[in-house]
Amino acid sequence: MTSHKINMLLIVGLLVVGAFDREGLAQTTSLPQRHVVQIDGFVFQPPQIRVVPGDTVVWVNRDFVPHFISVGEGKWQSDVLEENQSWELVVNETGSFSYVCVFHPKMIGIVTIHD
């Protein structure tokens, strides 16, 4: 076997080992997820979500009219969301937080952030 072939085999071997390492990492450490909540017909869908710290929750307004989300009694607030606009919130702490549309207070949802 020539030295060139040996070098190629070593490179391929290293790449394979590296791939397994990444796979193993993915199995032990979950990557942050995006959770989409649709606002449609004056309801949040789904009305309750469970996420982990580091995840992103995205609210998307599908109604004609503007909505304005307040999570945890004002702890986090969106801008006014016009039709088809969205708001992203990266959650970094645990707890269960209810949220409402400030404009239409009968619209209620819950986001639970757990370890």
């Binding site: 004609f64 009219v65 503007p66 016009e82 039709e83 404009f103 239409h104």
Partner: peptide
């Protein structure tokens, strides 16, 4: 305020 906001949005549509 809600009426102005929502009806304006509907009429815009």
């Amino acid at each position: 305020e809600l009426m102005v906001r929502d009806h304006t949005a509907v009429n815009k549509k």
